[in-house]
Write a protein that binds this DNA or RNA. Structure first.
Length: 215
DNA sequence: CGTTCGATGCACT
DNA sequence: GTGCATCGAACGT
């Protein structure tokens, strides 16, 4: 005999990553987020993409981490519960989104640097358009670009990633080979190889940097 | 291909 | 006042 299953989506209820996923060593989360899907369900529509590039920022001893100066008003989310979003404004014009990791009181997070667009490409293109047309592979290429394509802003700071409207989910994406290298765009802590990306992927930012390592 | 540089707001010293 | 976890246009090779 065979059991009957609801036709509308096996595993649908368990697609969103649970808090336990984030309550782990940050470098593990940094690697495991590659291939997961960042989803923003907004009133104007759904936009989602496969995470293909991440960076770890770990603790007050990491000079590039926003927690390096100790607790401040801005970095408070880093000290909070794992699975929350840490969003901040960079260079006065770009929002960057992180997933908070480790345990509460232990400041660490994973920066999401690039996505492969999956759903809501028209919506992404509209949000990104500033005069010209943006190529599909470039829609969510770079941490400032992806937040713009998904419509994320400071309003999403401290948002719970284990709930709508902003979540990270397991959509059973085919496995990808991982590569590691130095983090990008920082002037300190460049000795740590805490940037992780899907090797050879077209949506990864600054593809010339870094090197491939066995998965 | 490569590198340089200006935009632009705010947290922190 | 200083310095950004960036981006894209402009310019050099």
């Amino acid at each position: 005999m065979h059991t009957s299953r609801p036709r509308t989506g096996p595993r649908r209820t368990s697609r969103i990553l649970p808090r336990a996923f984030y309550a782990r060593p940050t470098l593990e989360v940094t690697a495991d987020l590659i291939g997961k899907v960042l989803v923003h369900r907004a009133p104007e529509g759904v936009a989602a993409g496969v995470i293909v590039e991440t960076e770890a920022y770990i603790g007050e001893s990491d000079p590039a981490c926003h927690a390096a100066p100790g607790p401040t008003a801005r970095n408070a989310p880093l000290y909070g519960a794992p699975g929350m979003a840490y969003v901040y404004l960079n260079y006065g014009m770009h929002y960057l989104v992180n997933a908070v990791t480790e345990a509460e009181g232990q400041p660490a997070a994973v920066l999401i640097r690039a996505l492969e667009p999956l759903e809501g490409l028209d919506l992404m293109a509209r949000r990104r358009a500033r005069g010209g047309v943006v190529a599909e592979a470039d829609l969510c290429r770079g941490p400032g670009n992806l937040t713009r394509a998904l419509g994320l802003s400071l309003a999403h700071n401290r948002s719970d990633l284990t709930n709508a409207p902003l979540s990270i989910e397991d959509w059973a994406v085919p496995p990808m080979d991982l590569a590691w290298g130095p983090r990008i765009g920082i002037s300190v802590g460049t000795d740590r190889l805490w940037r992780c990306w899907a090797a050879g992927h077209r949506s990864v930012s600054r593809r010339r940097q870094g090197f491939v390592s066995p998965a």
